[in-house]
Computed example of a mutant assay.
Amino acid sequence: MTIRSRHESVTFKHPFHIRGIARELPAGRYEVVTDEEMIEGLSFAAWRRVATMITVPKEGARGDITEVHAIGSVDLADAQRIDATAHD
């Protein structure tokens, strides 16, 4: 089975919540990794998302200490939509 990972940066302008993480996260830029597996047996290349992870600052840590959380892609999209419609 072939797996690929896509890396992207997402930016939140406001503090936000995302399902799967029990605390509010600060506004800022976050790295998101999406793992996809190739769907075998087709006559064309097609991929299925199997995992989405976000790197966040570790709670209570100083400096650049981070942790990775598995999240749902729909939950990420919801958080981005809420952030985009929030008023400053």
Rank of each mutant, 00 (worst) to 15 (best):
Asp35Trp: 08
Ile3Ala: 12
Glu67Gly: 10
Ile18Phe: 06
His17Glu: 13
Arg4Val: 11
Pro26His: 06
Thr55Cys: 11
Val32Pro: 01
Ala79Asp: 06
Thr66Asn: 12
Asp75Leu: 05
Thr66Ile: 05
Ala61Pro: 07
Pro57Arg: 08
Glu37Asn: 02
Pro26Trp: 04
Ser73Glu: 14
Asp64Thr: 01
Gln80Leu: 15
Gly20Ala: 00
His69Lys: 12
Ala22Pro: 00
His17Ile: 04
Ile21Asn: 06
Ile3Met: 12
Lys58Pro: 02
Asp75Glu: 13
Asp78Trp: 05
Ile21Tyr: 07
Met53Cys: 03
Ile54Asp: 09
Arg48His: 13
Ser43Ile: 06
Glu24Leu: 02
Phe16Asp: 02
Glu36Pro: 02
Pro15His: 00
Ala51Met: 04
Asp64Val: 01
Thr66Leu: 06
Ala86Lys: 15
Asp75Lys: 09
Ala22Gln: 03
Glu59Asp: 11
Thr52Glu: 08
Ile18Cys: 08
Gly63Glu: 04
Pro26Arg: 08
Ser5His: 08
Phe12Arg: 05
Ile54Asn: 03
Thr52Trp: 03
Ile18Gln: 04
Arg49Leu: 09
His87Asp: 13
Arg19Val: 11
Arg81Ala: 15
Lys13Asn: 14
Phe44Gln: 07
Val68Thr: 15
Glu24Gly: 01
Val33Ile: 15
Thr52His: 02
His17Pro: 01
Asp78Gly: 00
Thr2Arg: 15
Glu24Met: 09
Thr52Phe: 04
Val68Lys: 13
Thr85Glu: 13
Thr52Leu: 07
His87Tyr: 11
Asp64Lys: 05
Val50Gln: 06
Val10Leu: 10
Ala51Tyr: 06
Thr34Lys: 02
Glu67Val: 13
Leu25Ala: 02
Glu59Phe: 07
Glu40Thr: 09
Asp83Asn: 14
His17Gly: 04
Arg48Tyr: 04
Glu24His: 00
Asp35Met: 04
Ser9Pro: 00
Gly20Cys: 02
Ile71Thr: 09
Pro57Tyr: 08
Arg62Tyr: 09
Gly41Met: 04
Thr34His: 02
Val33Asn: 08
Gly28Gln: 04
Thr52Tyr: 00
Thr34Ile: 11
Ile18Asn: 06
Ala27Met: 01
Arg4Pro: 00
Ala22Ile: 00
Thr85Asp: 06
Thr66Lys: 08
Ser5Tyr: 08
Ala61His: 12
Arg29Glu: 15
Thr85Val: 14
Glu67Tyr: 09
Val10Ile: 15
Leu25Val: 02
Val56Asn: 01
Asp35Tyr: 03
Ile54Tyr: 05
Glu37Phe: 01
Tyr30Ser: 03
Arg49Trp: 01
Ala79Ile: 09
Tyr30Asp: 01
Thr85Gln: 14
Glu31Gly: 07
Ile65Trp: 07
Asp88Gly: 14
Arg4Trp: 03
Arg6Gln: 14
Lys13Gln: 10
Glu36Phe: 05
Ile18His: 03
Ile54Ala: 02
Ala86Val: 06
Gly41Thr: 07
Gly28Asp: 05
Thr85Ala: 13
Ile71His: 10
Glu31Val: 12
Ala45Val: 12
Thr55Tyr: 03
Thr55Asp: 09
Thr85Ile: 14
Val10Asn: 10
Glu24Arg: 04
Arg6His: 13
Thr52Asp: 09
